[in-house]
Design a protein around this nucleic acid. Structure first.
Length: 378
DNA sequence: GAATCGTGGTC
DNA sequence: TGACCAAGATT
């Protein structure tokens, strides 16, 4: 039994909604008060925002929506165009699933998103969080959308000692209990805005928090120590070689990676295998064609979620008549920006050729000078 | 349940 | 500067 002195105040959803009405963020995918909600935009933004910051998503979201304004426009587009529009945003299976989901919406749901969590869950790329978020935000269903922000807010509010991810079921229950019957969509967004702007991972602005009083972690001064987590070690460094072939007609050799797995379906300069004990001095043995290979000084460093990578870059210049090996193709430098090049491959090409001609309007820069001291691109 | 899956920003 | 983090899903 709790004594009156030890009983904490229960957080009131109304206090959070009042705070939200004053401090809500103005985001491009967020309907303004009174405006109709477009489920397509809500869904698109939620997929893009998975493990991705608001700042990183914004330019991609705007470009993507311009190119694919409706779910049917997206469904009718070739998957290659979708991958290209996603290039640089990361987690590329999201793009493939997004396209598959759009087709399912058109073909199985008459072009309309289902309004319930259960139905949304059956669609590709939509898991527990996204189903709840779309149901709440687009259809005003009382669903508990629990993302990283909500986990942090709730773990502090209730001072949950159980570390993540084991605490997820409990957090979900506690969140569901807080979801109000009225304005559940705003409540979901308010909770995330609170986590993003007030209840931040470091130095939370508790003094500005509408839930400061009921927050148990705050009462103990331990707010920064929540949520509890078990941190996992970073993966082992892998090395490899990347081969940039520049043909006399100013095109370079590319291939498309297999649809599944790391960087699935994305374009790349041919590379060796990536392994911890790769020996760069033997890289020429892995080259895609016979040529006079020049090993460039420095390496391209890149960090994936589960391992860091170091690529040695080899450059070769070949004649205009050189054919592309099977499963490879030539792409002119001028049209390189139309390829679905992931970030690491942009680094590789920039390392070999100088800056990428991503903005088509910029004049092609001359080959970048490189000294032994200055050779590392990170 | 543990691994896999990108990238950019922050401190 | 390296660890951590960001509106997670899939296998």
């Amino acid at each position: 039994m709790l004594t009156p002195a030890s009983r904490a105040t229960k957080p009131d959803p109304a206090d959070l909604l009042t705070w939200y009405d004053r401090h809500r963020r103005d985001l491009p995918w967020r309907a303004k008060p009174g405006e109709p909600v477009d489920p397509y935009r809500v869904w698109l933004s939620e997929i893009m925002l998975q493990q991705t910051t608001v700042a990183a998503v914004q330019p991609f979201y705007r470009r993507f929506l311009e190119r694919f304004p409706t779910v049917s426009a997206l469904a009718e587009a070739p998957v290659e165009a979708v991958m290209q529009a996603w290039a640089g945003l990361g987690y590329y299976s999201r793009a493939r699933n997004l396209h598959a989901c759009a087709k399912a919406i058109v073909e199985k749901h008459g072009g309309h998103f289902p309004a319930t969590e259960a139905e949304l869950l059956t669609l590709k790329g939509i898991g527990a969080y996204t189903a709840a978020a779309v149901a709440a935000i687009a259809f005003d269903q009382p669903a508990a959308a629990v993302d990283g922000n909500v986990e942090r807010v709730l773990s502090r509010l209730f001072m949950i000692e159980e570390p993540l991810p084991k605490a997820k079921p409990l957090i979900r229950e506690l969140t569901q209990d807080l979801v109000p019957v009225e304005r559940p969509g705003d409540f979901a967004q308010a909770l995330m805005d609170l986590g993003a702007t007030i209840c931040t991972p470091k130095r939370p602005a508790c003094a500005l928090c509408p839930w400061m009083k009921p927050c148990r972690a705050r009462a103990e001064g331990l707010q920064e120590t929540f949520p509890r987590k078990i941190r996992k070690e970073s993966g082992q460094l892998r090395r490899g070689a990347a081969f940039v072939v520049l043909r006399a007609d100013d095109s370079i050799l590319l291939r498309t990676r297999p649809p599944q797995g790391l960087l699935g379906g994305m374009a790349e300069a041919p590379t060796s295998a990536w392994e911890p004990d790769y020996e760069p001095s033997r890289a020429v043995l892995d080259a895609p064609i016979e040529a006079r290979w020049q090993r460039l000084p420095g390496v391209v460093r890149h960090v994936f979620t589960h391992f860091p990578l170091e690529l040695t870059v080899l450059l070769a210049k070949v004649s205009r008549s050189t054919p592309a090996p099977d499963d490879m193709r030539w792409t002119s430098r001028r049209e390189l920006h139309e390829e679905a090049l992931p970030g690491v491959m942009k680094k590789v090409i920039a390392h070999a050729l100088g800056d990428l001609p991503t903005p088509p309007t910029k004049p092609a820069p001359t080959r970048r000078k490189r000294s032994a001291a200055e050779g590392e691109t990170s």
